[in-house]
């Protein structure tokens, strides 16, 4: 999939680019979002600062292909997302994105391992990579161990029994399994206390680097800024016109 763009020597090419993107939520009190230009090179770690109501959720939905803009062009990994149908976008997301939410990341009735393996059902390419050296379950266990969940007895436990910090690490393992190119994290540490935030980010950064992935993290917490290659304010990227802030925040 990545092969569409040849990688020139030196500077990494842009793997994400938005051009004149316009999106309006359907309905009367339409919340609209416009992005004139936004581009990211590969392997960067980017922090997007955006308070609630800044169109964060809409932006991420566009980026991951859950929503399609009414106008404009979104290109990711050389593929023009805006030319794909909904099903193709879903398949593309499964293959190339790992997503970590703020909280409630896991299916509570599934085991830890089940939760980590979940994306592989939708992404044959990631499954292939994850099983390159062994079984998918082994790869999941390796990732969990790297993320500080080495106790094997945890892996068969129901995800609902884990602490919030543990849950976020399982979510990170799920995002990372099969090495997708882009990791999107939506305030993944806001439910954690300071010490745990740092520990979580250390682990996450190490794994993202090891996988050679691009990390896009959204947060309203500026204090995280020093750890990132680049810090952007969502308000600078996206112009929103909101009749009702709540509609898409």
């Amino acid at each position: 999939m990545y092969g569409g763009t040849a990688e020139p020597n030196g500077a990494a090419p842009d793997i994400i680019s938005f051009g004149d993107v316009h999106f309006t939520w359907p309905g009367k009190n339409a919340f609209a979002l416009a992005i004139e230009r936004f581009a990211l090179p590969a392997r960067e770690r980017v922090l997007l600062i955006g308070p609630s109501g800044s169109g964060k959720s809409t932006f991420l939905s566009l980026l991951c292909g859950i929503l399609a803009p009414q106008a404009g062009r979104i290109e990711i990994l050389g593929r023009e997302l805006t030319r794909l149908g909904a099903a193709a976008r879903d398949a593309f997301r499964a293959e190339h994105f790992g997503i970590i939410f703020q909280m409630f990341n896991l299916l509570p009735y599934g085991s830890v391992i089940d939760n980590v393996l979940l994306p592989l059902s939708f992404a044959p390419g990631r499954r292939k990579r994850a099983t390159a050296t062994g079984s998918a379950a082994e790869e999941a266990q390796r990732l969990l161990a790297r993320l500080g969940l080495e106790e094997a007895h945890l892996h068969d436990r129901s995800a609902a029994n884990l602490s919030v910090g543990q849950q976020q690490r399982v979510a990170a393992a799920r995002a990372l399994i099969g090495a997708p190119e882009i990791i999107v994290a939506d305030e993944p540490t806001s439910a954690l206390d300071r010490d745990r935030q740092d520990a979580f980010l250390d682990l996450l950064f190490a794994e993202v680097s090891a996988a050679g992935a691009t990390l896009i993290m959204v947060s309203h917490d500026r204090s995280l800024a020093p750890r990132f290659d680049r810090v952007l304010r969502l308000a600078e990227i996206a112009k929103t016109t909101a009749a009702h802030l709540g509609a898409a925040a």
Binding site: A94, I99, L107, S121
Partner: peptide, 15 residues
Amino acid sequence: RREMAILRSVGARPR
């Protein structure tokens, strides 16, 4: 709805 958002995020189609 949470369960569905998770499934959607890992690439499940609405279908």
